[in-house]
Design a protein around this nucleic acid. Structure first.
Length: 743
DNA sequence: AGGTCGACGTTTTTT
DNA sequence: ACGTCGACCT
């Protein structure tokens, strides 16, 4: 070990000893447990810069992040540290360090080795709603009642299987009844995707992992190239990602994973927290570095966060500390309902802006579910507070945007019938459901693709004159567009993506269609959205001079937040999940209520309670100086007004650090009210905690009667094991179990 | 063919 | 509350 007598490289400047170790330990397996606010991003960037400084070829470094946004940020920071811009262009081969997400890496791999793997390079990437459409087709083909297995549920099952690298064949051999019944749907779904020359998000991972198994040459080549692997947010990797990563490093073993088990919030998406917890078992020679000094939050905020997360039982103990100031107490706003809550929070933020001169962009507001943003937006707008929603996929889910993209997809990938069907009659051109079905039948009978039938629609029996003329017309348009996009063999100069989109929007009739539909360019109207898409395409053209339409579409499929930079003077609104990795001087979290945070689904699956607590922890630890929490006594959700109980998390926080403020809207406003957030919780606890003993008969609202087999006292986490007569053995969290004692 | 109206499920979170 | 889907009307 070198000593600090040695002259220090500027790359290590300003880093504390564990941070320096995390930067300098470049060979062999390294696990960095990076607590919230411990300067993780800094360490990762410096580490990349350090490696390059040590003479490691940049192109042999692969850094994987969780979101595109994180990748972009890191790319910028590394570029700054290196003093030169990074070249990338979304391809697999280039001379800079590769910094991207797992999905983007896999996309590059699949494209690069498309022929070996047996894919056509111009495949479409289906978004969630397209995926569900295909699932629905598969369900119908298998004659399964969509009420028994809803498309969304079915898709979730397929997705879960893929993330565990379970193929349709393996699925069919699984023991369970549900799997046996569902296996044909999964198989059909995959077959439909291949027919359409399409993949879904999970395929990107699964196909890559399987390709590594099947084609040793690919794996050899890639592990030869990427000698140094760095994975951020390792606590949120799923099994497929785990396999991909470990296959890549098998030879050289230079793997550095960075993460924080306390911030694992994606189990619902297949993330496996064991990946990080078991890293030391996977690599017995792993060097473990713990970053526990927090540079972000005040002492009070950190105390709140620590006390909260301490309640998790399934957890590696970790103590965050900080040299920062004590800070101010957090505030808890007690509100009457969701509108009152929005109003109160707005007032608080407004007074911070006016009295303490805090900029709007220094503030953020988090909520558990997207639906909660609406009321908040209304209140902010009425009070004239500028805000911006870091909305994920929302923009690309807009009807008009999906329409435009569907046209583009068909241009690039004529086999994409999911897209073709979407726009074949949008705008309406006289090709109805009937005509489509006729043409599809003709296609199947003659072993043609639907797109090919368009051109010879006259041959199709029973097709109306109008329909066949329109179809032929559309076919001609597509042929022309394909030529101009540089896709056919007779390709002239490939046109810019922006120009192609403008042309398609005009010539397809979409523009006129949407002009007519809504009276001119209303703000947020379809025409304006399409223009925004065109603008972003222009940016894409600038940044990727040698890209084509295909690259553009692939990129767009993987990008969710269209580079939403919260740089302007506006408050940022987002879900708690989206907040991961960010920090703000002022943070407000709304809806600290049972059923919201924690979400009501934990009532059915208590194992999720700890993840909800981590989610709350993530929210709290985003705050640097001020934390505002709020809860409403009643809330309208899905059209129903419900009385809301305080979140159990509130009483797990140290009360000395929280000032409770009662909204005038509550009425009464007596001293008794002031502590009601606490009282509510006590009540529910008293109610839910009948002194249970082993052998006690109990009644559960859904599972029926049962006998207590075991009780593990852990305060708010107290668990009971119950043998139910009908439902079998279940482990429940007492507080949520709604048990009543029998007899 | 294409648009309008009511019933219905639905969404917790995102690549 | 919202959007999607199917039945029914123009």
């Amino acid at each position: 070990m070198r000593t600090d007598v040695e002259e220090q490289s500027p790359i290590l400047e300003g880093l504390n000893p564990p941070q320096q170790q995390a930067v300098r330990q470049i060979d062999g397996p390294v696990l960095v447990i990076a607590g919230a606010g411990s300067g993780k991003t800094r360490v990762i960037t410096r580490r990349v810069a350090w490696m390059i400084d040590q003479g490691i070829p940049p192109w042999s470094i692969l850094a994987i992040t969780f979101t595109n946004k994180a990748a972009g940020e890191m790319r910028n920071r590394v570029a700054t540290a290196m003093g030169r811009p990074l070249r990338d262009f979304g391809r697999l081969v280039h001379d800079s360090p590769t910094i991207c997400t797992f999905h983007s890496l896999c996309l590059r791999i699949l494209k690069h080795y498309a022929e070996t793997i047996g894919l056509q390079r111009n495949f479409s990437i289906l978004d969630v709603s397209d995926q569900q459409k295909v699932v629905k087709l598969a369900l119908e083909a298998c004659k399964i009642d969509p009420k028994r297995y809803s498309p969304s549920h079915s898709h979730a099952m397929i997705s879960a299987a893929k993330n565990k690298l379970i193929t349709p064949e393996m699925y069919a051999q699984a023991a369970g009844f549900v799997e046996k019944q569902f296996a044909p749907v999964y198989a059909k779904y995959q077959q439909l995707l291949r027919q359409n020359n399409a993949v879904d998000f999970d395929d990107l991972l699964m196909m890559t992992a399987l390709a590594f198994r099947k084609h040793k040459a690919i794996l050899d080549e890639l592990s030869e190239r990427f000698q140094y692997l760095l994975i951020d947010e390792y606590q949120d990797t799923n099994h497929a990602q785990y396999i991909i990563a470990h296959a890549l490093v098998m030879k050289h073993r230079n793997i550095c994973v960075v993460g924080d088990p306390d911030q694992s919030i994606y189990a619902w998406r297949g993330a496996d927290i064991r990946n990080i917890l078991d890293f030391e078992q996977d690599y017995s020679d792993a060097v473990v570095v713990r970053l526990e000094q927090n540079y972000r939050s005040s002492k009070r905020i950190l105390d709140i966060a620590s006390q909260l997360i301490k309640r998790n039982v399934d957890r590696k103990d970790k103590t965050l500390w900080t040299q920062n100031d004590e800070g101010e107490k957090a505030k808890l706003l007690l509100c009457a309902d969701e509108r009152d809550e929005a109003q109160q929070v707005t007032q608080q933020l407004k007074s911070l802006h006016e009295q303490q001169k805090i900029n709007w962009n220094q503030m953020a507001l988090f909520y558990r579910i997207n639906a909660m943003s609406r009321v908040m937006e209304d209140a902010l707008r009425r009070s004239g507070v500028p805000y911006e929603i870091a909305r994920g996929v929302e923009f690309y889910n807009r009807k008009e945007i999906k329409d435009v993209l569907a046209y583009l997809r068909v241009i690039v990938n004529p086999l994409d019938e999911v897209s073709l069907e979407r726009i074949i009659n949008t705008p309406t051109r006289g090709i109805g459901d009937n005509s489509i079905r006729l043409m599809q039948a003709h296609a199947t009978a003659n072993q043609l693709a639907l797109i090919d039938v368009l051109g010879r629609a006259l041959e199709v029996q029973g097709l109306s004159k109008k329909a066949s003329a329109s179809a032929a017309n559309l076919a001609k348009l597509f042929a022309r567009w394909r030529g101009l996009a540089g896709i056919t063999q007779t390709a002239e100069l490939a046109t810019s993506v922006q120009a192609i989109i403008e042309m398609v929007v005009r010539e397809s009739g979409l523009e006129d269609h949407y002009r007519k539909e809504s009276e001119e360019d209303i703000e947020g109207g379809p025409i304006e959205n399409i223009n925004e898409l065109i603008n972003s395409a222009a940016e894409f053209d600038d940044e990727n001079p040698e890209a084509n339409l295909e690259t553009y579409l692939h990129q767009v499929s993987l990008v969710s937040d269209a580079d939403h930079r919260g740089s302007e003077g506006a408050i940022t609104l987002m879900t708690l999940h989206a907040a991961k990795g960010l920090e703000f001087p002022v943070v407000a979290i709304i809806g600290l209520e049972e059923g919201i945070l924690p979400h009501e689904r934990v009532k059915e699956d208590p194992s999720q309670l700890e993840e909800e607590r981590r989610l709350c922890f993530v929210g709290v630890t985003r705050a640097q100086q001020q934390l505002i929490l709020s809860r409403a006594q009643s809330r309208a959700y899905r059209g129903m007004v419900q009385r809301q109980m305080a979140s159990p998390f509130l009483k797990e926080m140290p009360q000395g650090q929280i000032e409770v403020i009662s909204s005038p809207g509550l009425g009464g406003g007596s001293g008794e009210r002031l502590s009601s957030w606490h009282r509510d919780s006590e009540e529910s606890q008293v109610q839910a905690e009948p002194k249970l003993k082993r052998g006690q008969r109990v009644q559960h609202p859904t599972f029926g009667q049962g006998t207590v087999a075991d009780v593990t006292a852990m305060g708010p986490n107290t668990r009971v094991v119950i043998d139910f007569a009908k439902a079998g053995r279940k482990t429940l969290i007492l507080e949520y179990a709604r048990l009543t004692v029998v007899g």
